[in-house]
Design a protein around this nucleic acid. Sequence first.
RNA 1: GCGUCGGUGGUAGAGUGGUCAAUUACAACAGACUGUAAAUCUGUCGCCUUAGGGCUACGAAGGUUCGAAUCCUUCCCGACGCA
Length: 283
Amino acid sequence: MKKVIVILGQTATGKSALAIKIAKKINGEIISADSRQVYKDLNIGTGKITKKEMNGVPNYLLDVANPKHKFTVAEYQKLVISVMANIVAKNKIPIICGGTGFYIDAITKGIVFPEVPPNQKLRKQLYSKSAIALFKYLEKIDPGRALNIDSKNKVRLIRAIEIAKALGKVPKIKQKKSQYKFIKIGLYLPPEKLKKKIERRVKKMFQDGLLKEIKKLKRSGISDKRLKEFGFEYWKPTPEKVILETLKYAKRQMIWFKRDPEIKWFDASAKNLSKIIPLVKKD
RNA sequence: GCGUCGGUGGUAGAGUGGUCAAUUACAACAGACUGUAAAUCUGUCGCCUUAGGGCUACGAAGGUUCGAAUCCUUCCCGACGCA
């Protein structure tokens, strides 16, 4: 089985830098696992790696989507599957690197998403209804899914209804066995250090011209509504606000990663690359 | 010094005699996650509890009342106005 290295962890723990180092050592190529770095022109606010930082190592799944249009996990999954195959065909090792847990799981756990593309018209129409109403409706058309859905989460309810309307009901979660062996490496930082790192990173974002980037997006025709969807960095950001929100986000990331027992964790501040290398080198 | 308006839980800010351990928002803590995932959503959030309750609380001290965060008195603090 071909191996794939997965580097994950909270924001600002130094995943990208580690990925580059490992790529150099084991002849790898990097695949980003970040739900926003897939968009063109979202650079500073998403902390996207620069050409210079890449240091000659290819990074895939960056800039593959137009920010005007929504990109989804399912599209991500399809793209990554083909990119992984290409890398392996070149006799190189794919290194998935990023902090979006859902995207990583879509690849490493082989989640099979129901083949129902988003129906914006239906979504818009359903969104005007209350969660209670949506839940009652779902109960009627798909009692099975209604049983274990979060009955107050409109986003989930709407997607479930969307699928149920198209397929009759929401299929049970399926996972496809992967042809790859994923080696999951988690980077973490002690809370105090993480906080400092985030503070530094956010300050740099503003210095690097986050506000200019937002203006440019606006000029290119991105609506306020869309900007909000890009996250707190893109909606009337101030350093204080972005730092606070980033810390909260980092907590949510950890909640997600915590439930995956396959992840091997390393303290990112310990510079213990020597411990990681044998792990990624063996087969 | 006189006058007016204020002082509420980690913060902001409702409440102006009983249904108030106190609306709400934010923060904090815990968690969920089937094509929006940095999104979206849930629970807890004074202290103790055998989860029925018990205790201490709305600047401080007294008082009125069956009953006070809410009314009265004095004091302390803040803002503004007049001196």
